[in-house]
Design a binder for these strands. Sequence first.
DNA 1: CGGATCGAC
DNA 2: CTATGTCGATCCG
Length: 726
Amino acid sequence: MDNMKNVDNGSYNGGALLRMGLNDNKAGMQGLDKEKINKIIMEASKGSKFYENELKKDQQVNQRIEKMMQLKEKITQQQLLKAQLQVDKLVMELEQSRNLSCTIVHIDMDAFYAAVEMRDNPELKERPIAVGSMSMLSTSNYHARRFGVRAAMPGFIAKKLCPHLTIVPLNFEKYRKVSKEVKEILAEYDPHFMPMGLDEAYLNVTEHLEERLNWPEDKRRYFLNTENTTEKNKEDINISGTLNIDGYSSSPELFEDGTSVMDDHSGQRDQSLKNVVVFGTSAEEAVKEIRFRIEQKTQLTASAGIAPNTMLAKMCSDRNKPNGQCRISPERQAVLDFIKDLPIRKVPGIGKVTEKMLKALGIVTCSELYQQRALLSLLFSEASWRSFLDISLGLGSTHLEKYRIFRPLTFSEINTAEDQYSLCRELCRELAQDLQKEGLKVFFILFTFKRTPLSSSRGSFFDKKRAARQLNCNNVFPSESVGKQHFHGVKSSANFVEEANKVTGLQKSNVCEIFTCPVCFEEQSSSNLEEINRHVDECLAGSLVKESVEISKNDFSRENTFSFLSHCKNENIDDCKENITDQLAGTGQSGSTSENSSGNGKDKKFTQIVSEKPHREKQPGDLIDIPRNASIKQCLFPKRNSQENAEQFGRMDHTEETSSSCSFEAKEDSVLVCPVCNSEQKTTSLMSFNRHVDVCLNKGLIQELTEKGNRSAKTSDTENSIRVGE
DNA sequence: CGGATCGAC
DNA sequence: CTATGTCGATCCG
């Protein structure tokens, strides 16, 4: 079966294989073609338990595909049309939220483990090697890949493919050390960079590039360390007489754009300065500089991708590897051009199975993925088709999940008051920054003014973890990083409670600290939590309450959401106070004051979803949130889609996930504001509200599509290029 | 909720 | 001679 894991890996990287082949031929190596590789793997595998299991899994996938095709048959034109309208509405929203202002870099060390081993043992250099054991390889060098030897392949099969293969045992300590050296360099370009394992990292170099523009040349000047340079590089330097950074590469593909690091400057440089390199101020130059420095320091090469978001950056870094880089300029068209013919399998998150399922629908490239968006929304879970949509629009995360850069922390490690305060401070700062960066018009705060331990009687902390994380992820932080970071590694709620109680007795203490109201920022000195809450309530009622959603105290999922803890000392809030104040000022200007919230400004469309029933009295422990745009968008097509689909197509859908990913639910006597027409809807059920939104949505969309149709005939789903919200 | 599945390294 | 890993996230029943 050509669906076997190893074979599949082989075909997935067929492009790289071909490129490598060219290199290796130059080195006089021979290799195997794809067919031979598959045959050998097949012979080595068949009969094994593993292989049987692979076959079984493959059959299951086939069954899933069959089911999906049956489902597809039942879909009527009308359903498809309706889905098309809804999805396109969302497309327009997504298009509006497209953020091209960041420069994200993905750095990927080439064949990292193997490269380290080769560096430290020159004998291995010209030989095919792999790192790992007879039962599993972690990586292979480029000679070995010529034979089809790949990461995640068992060593004994690799040996059959390439009998001369040298298998070097893993040496993690060494890799960690080298990785640290690389990370020291990366940190200079983005102190919050996000490592992914030992050999990859994302950097947000937006700020660096801004500063870099004003840097004098000497801050961008580096000296070639000839001692640390490989023999080959020395040769290149000597031969060429003038430093050509292309030359130091072991691959002819470095800087595929035909420029070298020196090209911009070499013309002006005389021979005596040939060991000096000056890098420019552009993103490309900065990344070349990073790669140059990495190689100087570690003698290892890296590939890099530069793009407006992480997904694109990652795919970019793959394009010209090894030892190359690629950039997608921050323009919508450039993004779409890059995406257009890209096989979906290249997209991080789309693996073997998804690829096969989509292939069954005739989808191989990203533009095909876009064309079939309506169908996909009916066949796949909400999470899936939404991510498909993001992919086909070239959208991705523009911020890095900062908290992952540290070694995973457990609560037991954050066990001093000092640590907690500084964590709180840090989180506040990040939040304020994120909000500022995203230019949010709606400011969203979650409070729990309650000193209760995180674990309560109504169920264990971890029972609620998932729901809480969901909320975090949707509302407070743009990612789930917080939940991940802080919940990670805690084994049980009992464990946690125990740890929490050690925490300098904070939550037990009734001693009152001075408390800064997060709304008015006045210091409140009170020994009574309820008093504090009353004050905050008044503040909120005065300024923000009309934009807030009140969430029932009984809604347990909110209870343990990350909160600004009431026992934060002044200093904890102080640091973010400025930012928050600024943010609030900005909020006022951008028109989400209470007056506007029920207004009819188009840009205000989504700022208010739910207004609370005025006369319900707040209770201590209540949470107040103001949904931010992102989460509201997710409410546009709430659960009912899947439910209806399930009813119509006989598909049982997961119920809990999607409903809780909606950041609001209709409580008994809520007044809901339709995000489309902005009118208040008194409603007793989410259903009836949804029905209203539905009508509005379709009305609006038809109008928009009609308008568009006048300008362009390209409104059908049969078009060939990606068309979005032009 | 927990086992199965997916995807990444 | 044998021999196909581990983890987190998500799906799904």
